[in-house]
Design a protein around this nucleic acid. Structure first.
Lengths: 154, 154
DNA sequence: ATATGTGCAAATCCTTTGCACGTGC
DNA sequence: GCACGTGCAAAGGATTTGCACATAT
């Protein structure tokens, strides 16, 4: 999905929820979709302000759930205090696992198509209806293991 | 693994790390292993104080990582602000998935033996060595769906 | 004896919220 | 016009930390 298409989807979602299309929301959207990697709320704020300097931290935090609900962003919680987000250009309900390097904190993602099936299996045994599932793998840089250093940490 | 055996393991771990066996640490251990379900740091504090009223919140927070590192406790992060813990009576590296009900916030666990294999598979593709993996499923109580209420929420 | 551990309270960190003002529809 | 959105700064909640005192080894 192109950034153009995603912006349209964002506007449709806003209309659908009877939310207004504001300059701040558009700036935050644009900043989010300009990111190549995972980003935090604080990083998003900085980038959004570069586009529209009236954007406040509060509005970023208020807009993130809107974009997450509409599946334009995926929220990635690696259990480290702050949450990460990434643009979801695929659109659909792609099942991915996060792999987090405990040395350099870098977040990788890799597809895990069986997760949806497992979510159903697991939940049906417990009389629950599955909503979402997340697989997180912690790992250690081989670069770090060999050299006591990797791209992001030494 | 019995609570007795776990306490010995705890003491061995402390000795191994050259940490001291204090009344507070023992009280926190005992409180943790008396829990049948998942618990939070705050709940653990209350139970530990019932055993030794000199236990402080700070010591609970300082002791939790010690017990987690020694695999006596498993940390369960469901991305809800506070972390949960549970006694790991199995001792080993049991692979379990957490299933969290979004209606009542109850945490279920169910074995997921394939997770270790998947962790390796995923990590080997990224030149990383897997350390641990966690699968979390969000689900919705069927009891809640049917009756707009369940044991813990209505 | 002395290196560790502890309680207390203050500090930190991310995130949320109350309020008065601004603005899309 | 008016309901919704916003910025600001203060509040919030979980966790961490500095410091002086206490204690396990």
């Amino acid at each position: 999905m192109s950034t153009e298409a995603a912006r349209e989807k964002f506007k449709l979602h806003l209309a659908d929820k009877r939310l207004r299309v504001t300059n701040q929301r558009l700036a935050i959207f644009a900043a989010a979709f300009a990111q190549p990697e995972h980003f935090t709320a604080e990083e998003l704020l900085a980038h959004a302000r570069a586009i529209d300097d009236s954007v406040s931290r509060a509005t970023v935090y208020r807009t993130l759930p809107i974009m997450t609900e509409s599946a334009l962003l995926r929220e990635v919680d690696i259990g480290s205090g702050e949450k990460f987000y990434r643009p979801n250009r695929e659109g659909g309900s792609t099942q991915v696992a996060q792999v987090v390097c405990v040395d350099c904190d870098k977040i990788f993602e890799i597809s895990a198509p069986f997760m949806e099936w497992y979510g159903s299996t697991v939940s049906s045994k417990l009389d629950l209806t599955p909503v979402s599932q997340r697989l997180q793998v912690s790992a250690r840089c081989n670069a770090f293991r060999d050299a006591r250093a990797c791209k992001n940490r030494n």
